[in-house]
Design a protein around this nucleic acid. Sequence first.
DNA 1: GCTTAGGGTTTG
Length: 791
Amino acid sequence: MPVCVMGEGAGPDGQGTASLTVIPISHISTSSNHAHHSVKGTVVLKGRLVSSPSHNFILKAVLQDDTDSNTSPQDGSINVVLLGTLAKDFSQAVNQGDVVVASGFGVGKSPTALKDKLHPCNLLLSGERAFVHVCQAPPADRTSQQDVKRKRPLLPAEVPKYTYTKLDNLKPGEVVNVYGVVVFFKQPFKSRGSDFCSSLKITDQSQQKISCTIFCGKLESHPQIFQIGNIIRMHRVKVHLYNDTLTLLNTFGFSALTFDGAVGAGVEPRTASKSFHFTEEDRRAVEELRLWAASQVLLPADATLTLSAVQPKMYFDLTCQLLAKATVDTTCTLLRVWDGTRCPHALLKLTVEPNIVEGPTFSEEREKLIASVLVYDNHVQFAQQIKPGDFLRIYNLRAIPGLVKMPGLSSSQSEVNHLSFHLHGGTAYGRGIRLLPGDSPDVQELRRVMEAFQGYDEVSHPDLNDSVLWPPLSPERGASVACSTERTCDHLVEPLTLSKVKRSVPGGVHHVRVQLRSYEPRRLHQALKLYCSKCTSMQDVPDDEHLDSIFSKAAADCGPLQPCSPPTWTLSGKVYIPRELSRRPPVRTLNVHMSAQLLSEGRIKELIFLTGSTLQEACHLAAGYHNVVPMRSSGGHLALLDPPAPFLFRGRKRFYRCKQCSETSVREPTTDGVIDEKNIGEALGVQLLKFVLLMKFQLQDASDTLDVFLWRDAESFFNVSAVDAAAYQEAQDSIRQTLDSLCPPGDSSGRRPWLDVCLTEYRPTEEDTQTFYQICHTSTFKPSCTRTPPS
DNA sequence: GCTTAGGGTTTG
């Protein structure tokens, strides 16, 4: 067999490689004679074994030279093509991450070098002389870690270049790849044939609206559309003409990725597929579609409402958690759900025989919060598959006032104007139920809302029935994920015990193997700080209560009696504040000033200067406008709000300025590129404050304990950026999960993992006699979990 | 291997 597997540490066995010289991959060229050379490298990509008529089998791989740090990444990684039996053996014996030595290869010009930016040559391994030696297979637990580490720099040789057809350029009969914004969709439903059917309609910058039908027997292969406005990418759909209208139908090799549609949200593809191509260009395509969609007024509005906002007779989509359910009859199932809010209308409680209810009972107070949803006909089957604790989205739910008559059941409340909810039969209007994955942003948000609900964990009325089940069933909560750390530095020092670290000469770098005994602060938001890189000051992130008061003071200065002249480069207008946000019904409007230049370019959503708003209103408008700068009136002119108020809202992100280092003035930002915190800050004379994470860890080993700080490298430690942690629940949850794994709450040291950590010693100033320690060059990894938070 | 559905003026 031409592929030889050797365990780690085994020496060369003379099977053809011992007499060869190992050369760096960068030395490979078509003009050299490599008959007596071999190359050693890590298999960073292993393609699939493909049967080929001419060679029986063919397999492509990419080999990366880990020893030669002097070369560019282009020259350090090379495409390898294996043919025949060797390809088959390689496919079985070699895994991604293995280190192999290849010899007896031919060298050719790589046809993909321009595209994949790898070595200009490729290695051809076929015939009797070709030989592959596996000399180091990583232990199983290291494989995923290596995969994670190598994911980014890896540029697979065989990533096909996909082209995407705009929706006004479809020709009947063509098989195309498309991107679009979802304007209508139905959850997959069972067709009369053999498959599930998804029906959706998409649009793009060409304004064309195209219906698509996806037939697929496997539910998980259907596009995971959660909301109108989601972005979808589909590969291999065929253009059909039906009733004089172009439609798209999936065809062989179909695949779909879907994305959140919100500007500024993470670009995380939703798919069940384990291997899919996703490039920087794809990320751009998603972000461009999001921006475009945000500027379109004609796209349908998302029908999502909370129980607190729903009115009788409305149709709406509800994101909620299933608390209990009961089968009413063959055509009707009762779902008892909650979404973390209180419905202002009394909710109908349908009394059902206790023995047919699946799920707990709740105290009277809590019963008042729970909505009764009756699902009919085709939806009953899906309802049978879900269980209490599941997170759901129910589409086209109807709020029904009054008494509901249910076959075989009596209602304890016969008064009218109690709301219940119906999911009618059929799939019209996208009616249906969808199970939401526990890690989806919607569920994270739902949990946050539930946990923030007043009285959620109130202990003054402990109730036997639900004390264990409220907080409602959250299977993932507190579930610990195996987690450890690895050093990313190249210091050549031997690990020391903590007691030796303490006794060593100050000023050094140490490697230690420790457990995390405790950490501060326990409340994550207190670990977030704002740092000025100019004056190196650090301050807390202001709380909303503080900001509320700054906003209301500024709003008072912007009243009708204080005329204020905006800069000459702006045009002024008004924005309407939705009724539910308005403190003074019926309708509240705010003055805004926009760049005349941007308006003339039709970039109406990009930047507004907002006066007189509350904090809440500024946040609300930041969901619709890309950049919202809150302003006040000062001496008849516009001015920025005083610190610590944020000077800019971008989506959920807030940007702050340093009071000492900013010399503000209201100038127009450059409008030729993307408008963001950098050029807005520059135009306004703002010294941006950077979000940082600051924590104190107490480390322990058998010898001693040691207090250390985590600051400079905190973001790479958690693999989360501080600005994301400030804005996104998901990023905060990721940090929380890491800490919970490193230091399980309420647990003895038994379950705490041992961590490899790099420590640097420092003294804040020359005069300081005390030595501090900081964790550097250390990252956490979760072998069982490779998800990354939004960037 | 072929078929399925082809949104929609909702209603228990």
